[in-house]
């Protein structure tokens, strides 16, 4: 199992607004009128925002049937598929942006997924929960158990999220796959962006989520 419906960020009201902030951050990184593929597009909320505010030509892949049917009924171009296995079928340079929003941690081969994203699209935008956040570190340190938070409430044996990483880890992966990092944003627990000039260790400690814009190094 790879692409899940968006992780249960939509728990409380303030969490829902966090999710929206995350979407808005992604939307800000997309040029108007671009051709976009949203991998793991869930109920299509981000695609809808992108279509309405950035006038993109948007497509989506979603693993859950309910999500797909909901998207299609909204008039979005979405197909049922799996990030780990189905990105192979897309030709090179088919899109300007390939987005992986809150889905990376649920893929079984994150590196391959990112590599395919950069092959299919000129740019890749990845947002994910930061496992380096101080609350998560503290939970493990103090209780010696796999951390569970409001954003990530599942137990370790039931969670679809099998590949957590920290902001620092993700930077390393982008180096490994040879991507150029164009932009990065970290959001705090209230969905507000952290200071842009803050050092990476600060982001890694206080960022609850991160959004990265990667570009293929040609």
């Amino acid at each position: 199992m790879t692409m899940q419906p968006r992780p249960p960020i939509a728990g409380s009201d303030h969490m829902r607004s966090t999710a929206r902030m995350d979407h808005l951050m992604v939307a800000e990184m997309v040029e108007r009128g671009a051709k976009v593929l949203d991998v793991g597009c869930g109920d299509g909320e981000l695609l809808k925002i992108l279509t309405e505010t950035r006038n993109v030509d948007g497509r989506g892949i979603e693993i859950s049937r309910e999500g797909v049917n909901e998207c299609v009924a909204k008039g979005l171009a979405v197909i049922q598929g799996d990030a780990d296995t189905d990105l192979v079928d897309y030709p090179d340079d088919a899109f300007d942006y390939v987005i992986l929003s809150q889905t990376l941690q649920a893929t079984s081969q994150p590196r391959h997924v990112i590599e395919h994203m950069l092959r299919i699209g000129r740019c890749a935008i990845v947002s994910f929960p930061n496992f380096g956040h101080w609350k998560i570190r503290l939970e493990l340190l103090m209780h010696g158990r796999m951390p569970r938070t409001d954003n990530l409430p599942d137990t370790w044996y039931e969670t679809p999220n099998i590949h957590f990483c920290t902001i620092k880890d993700f930077r390393e992966l982008s180096e490994v796959v040879g991507a150029k990092m164009d932009k990065a944003v970290a959001l705090n627990a209230w969905g507000q962006p952290l200071r842009l000039n803050a050092p990476w260790w600060f982001w890694n400690l206080f960022g609850e989520q991160a959004v990265f814009l990667l570009r293929r190094r040609d």
């Binding site: 030509d57 797909v68 049917n69 998207c71 299609v72 909204k74 171009a77 049922q80």
Partner: peptide
């Protein structure tokens, strides 16, 4: 530009002619 939906039903091939609310929603939305 393609959408693809698979509808859960036990009605077989004939489902496209029958009362399938999910099909109606998809056709309408598309």
């Amino acid at each position: 530009r393609v959408s693809f939906a698979e509808i859960v039903t036990d009605k077989g091939h004939d489902a496209f002619l029958l009362e399938e609310p999910e099909l109606f929603g998809i056709v309408r939305g598309f």
